[in-house]
């Protein structure tokens, strides 16, 4: 079984971003970039499926600028077998990403598409579901457990109020939640090995995908600052403030 894992290059989760002075975009120049944490979890899960003998190839795909090769190498250092970069400098909406992934899937014919539930930049949480819709595949989003037995996929999903366990036929799209696994650290020998693994580059035009504009970004602004609070010296003072100043208890 082949597993395809779409991955994204994003600003590192520990970096606090700023909006640019013109209020037109988030300023990402010279920030530390990383593999989106949810994508990393998806890669880890795919590699574990391979290690368990349930998958035989893990292909990672990214849509983005040339430098996104770094994140594809990281994914291969974690154990993915090969990588595809669909090179573009255009910012892409989830729908466009899903259309491009659909074209890659048409070539790859993966039986399982495992991806992160959201990227921590746009926080959209859309791409996996959109790809599943376009490919007419079933989906299991927000996965905290994935198992494959006899061509049937069983997934536990983290939903509001609890856990839902689903069974679905393959091919299918699964999106990873935080508690699916804890990704390994890439070892130095594996980082070296990843440099020699195949990485193909394609363009959107080569894939025959035509995209159209759907949205215009009018402004990007920082959120309202909270007004500075105070430190209280004791639990007594806290209770007094909550009762008599904030009047919330």
């Amino acid at each position: 079984m082949k597993v395809m894992v779409p991955v994204k290059r994003v600003v590192d989760a520990n970096v606090k971003i700023r909006v640019n002075a013109e209020h037109t975009a988030v300023d990402t120049a010279n920030l530390k970039m990383a593999l989106n944490p949810f994508c990393e979890i998806a890669v880890e899960e795919a590699v574990r499926l391979k290690e368990a003998g349930k998958a035989d190839e893990v292909v990672v795909v990214s849509i983005g600028p040339k430098v996104a090769q770094e994140q594809l190498r990281t994914a291969m250092a974690l154990g993915a077998d090969r990588a595809i970069l669909v090179e573009t400098d255009e910012p892409m909406l989830p729908l466009s990403v899903a259309k491009i992934l659909l074209a890659v899937q048409a070539r790859e014919q993966a039986e399982l598409i495992l991806m992160g539930k959201q990227s921590i930049d746009g926080d959209n949480n859309q791409t996996g579901q959109m790809l599943a819709a376009l490919a007419d595949m079933p989906q299991a989003t927000f996965a905290s457990m994935v198992d494959i037995t006899d061509g049937q996929l069983t997934v536990s999903r983290e939903i509001d109020g609890g856990i839902q366990q689903l069974q679905l036929p393959l091919p299918a799209v699964v999106t990873a939640d935080l508690r699916l696994n804890e990704p390994r650290y890439a070892s130095l020998p594996n980082i070296m090995k990843a440099k020699r693994k195949p990485l193909d580059t394609l363009t959107v035009a080569e894939l025959g995908v035509t995209l159209k504009p759907h949205q215009q970004i009018l402004a990007v602004t920082p959120p309202a600052e909270r007004k500075a609070g105070v430190m209280v010296a004791s639990v007594e003072e806290l209770v007094d403030k909550l009762k008599n100043e904030a009047k919330v208890i």
Binding site: L93, P94, L95, A98, G122, D123, N124, N125, Q126, T127, G128, Q129, M130, L131, A132, A133, L134, Q139, T141, F142, R157, E158, I159, D160, H214, Q215
Partner: peptide, 23 residues
């Protein structure tokens, strides 16, 4: 924007060939 809404609406948008706005 609950787990059900987030699961469902992107699928609806893609079938309608329109973008979606989250949250």
């Amino acid at each position: 924007a609950t787990s059900t809404g987030k699961d469902l609406l992107p699928r609806v948008a893609a079938l309608l060939d329109v973008a979606m706005i989250s949250e």
